[in-house]
């Protein structure tokens, strides 16, 4: 299993490569795109400023990564693209593949996948989790489209992966391992983070009602539902990176699958995604280091229980691990 790290700038390459990153991904929004559509229309899932500022910088990042023999993948995983946007997208893919040296494109829109297959057939496709490939039907579909890798959504649990792996055959599977959860299914969240995450609980009052009719809630029901809201707020807090906090020991908090690494390895998962292209360099560094430390044990063939124990020790947040709400894999 490779450690896939997010990149926000060329200067981050050496730091992350030296710390254990084995693959990189990033985004770029060409200036002509922003001029035409405004920064409000995102070319990938993150805002334009979370990506590289120029092709020159992107090329330099690829060169630096190549020095470590690390491939760089590019995200083109906006939920959808319109007809008018395709020429610019195809030009971008051609340029990135032929001139810049991007090794694969992370795509969620089946229309763009079809366009790539007909117009840039040599450009490898990684199916983004935004395409919601969560069953064997999806795996079969993307297999037929000859993709190279499929990123499983965060909601796919450990017990589901073996069947998906079997269906995938030679196609690589990537899973989420650290940071930035999603309360809803990423593919089916039709909101924009430009207004802050829709799921962020601090902005909402949750007012319970009966679904059926206009019955009044009993006092006991109201108590139960208010308690449920409190628990929900806590769950969302974990999913939203514990309010983007850093722990006392300097490690970033947030959704985590570290203690499942041995299981994921035995299931034949190929890549471990660390989320957070737009995060601070320090957060990326600490995240890569945490995954690397546990992966060393996995590669050393440590028993599953040992790996789990080490993961919890490194995480150093026993109360959060015990809560179960910070775990990708429950």
């Amino acid at each position: 299993m490779n450690i896939l790290a997010p990149l926000g700038a060329k200067e981050e390459v050496e730091m992350l490569a030296e710390s254990g990153a084995e693959e990189f991904y990033c985004g770029i929004t060409p200036m002509e795109w922003m001029e035409k559509y405004s920064p409000g229309v995102w070319i990938n899932r993150r805002n334009p400023y979370a990506g590289f500022p120029s092709f020159k910088d992107l090329e330099e990042a690829v060169r630096r990564a190549e020095a470590y023999d690390i491939p760089l993948f590019l995200t083109l995983n906006a939920p959808y693209y319109t007809e008018a946007q395709y020429p610019m997208l195809i030009d971008l893919i051609k340029r990135c593949q032929e001139e810049v040296g991007i090794k694969a494109f992370i795509v969620s829109d089946p229309g763009l996948m079809a366009a790539m297959k007909s117009q840039v057939p040599k450009a490898p496709i990684h199916v983004s989790s935004l395409a919601a490939p969560m069953n064997t039907g999806s795996i079969e579909l993307y297999k037929q489209m000859q993709v190279e890798r499929i990123v499983l959504p965060r909601s796919v649990q450990l017990n589901e992966i073996p069947a998906l792996k079997e269906a995938a055959g030679d196609i690589e599977l990537e899973v989420f391992i650290l940071n930035d959860g999603c309360v809803y299914e990423e593919s089916f969240c039709m909101t924009t983070h430009s207004a802050g995450a829709f799921c962020s609980q601090a902005q909402w009052n949750y007012v319970p009602q009966h679904a059926d009719g206009n019955k009044s809630l009993t006092a006991a029901e109201l108590d139960t539902l208010n308690e449920q809201v409190d628990d929900y707020r806590e769950f969302v807090w974990f999913v939203n990176d514990c309010n983007c906090q850093i722990a006392h020991d300097g490690l970033p908090l947030g959704p985590c699958g570290l203690c499942s690494l041995a299981k994921l390895d035995s299931m034949g998962v190929d890549s471990l995604k660390i989320v957070g292209r737009e995060g601070a360099p320090y957060r990326k560094l600490a995240s890569v280091q945490m995954v690397k430390a546990v992966m060393e044990q996995v590669r050393g063939k440590a028993a599953e229980e040992e790996v789990e124990k080490l993961a919890r020790k490194i995480r150093n947040q026993p109360q959060y691990c015990e809560s179960g709400l910070m775990c990708y894999y429950r």
Partner: peptide
């Protein structure tokens, strides 16, 4: 172009029809 993007669907692009 931005306004049009937010009102349109991607399903009717030539590639999606393909």
């Amino acid at each position: 172009e931005g306004k049009e993007f937010f009102k349109k669907t991607g399903l009717f692009s030539q590639s999606f029809r393909q």
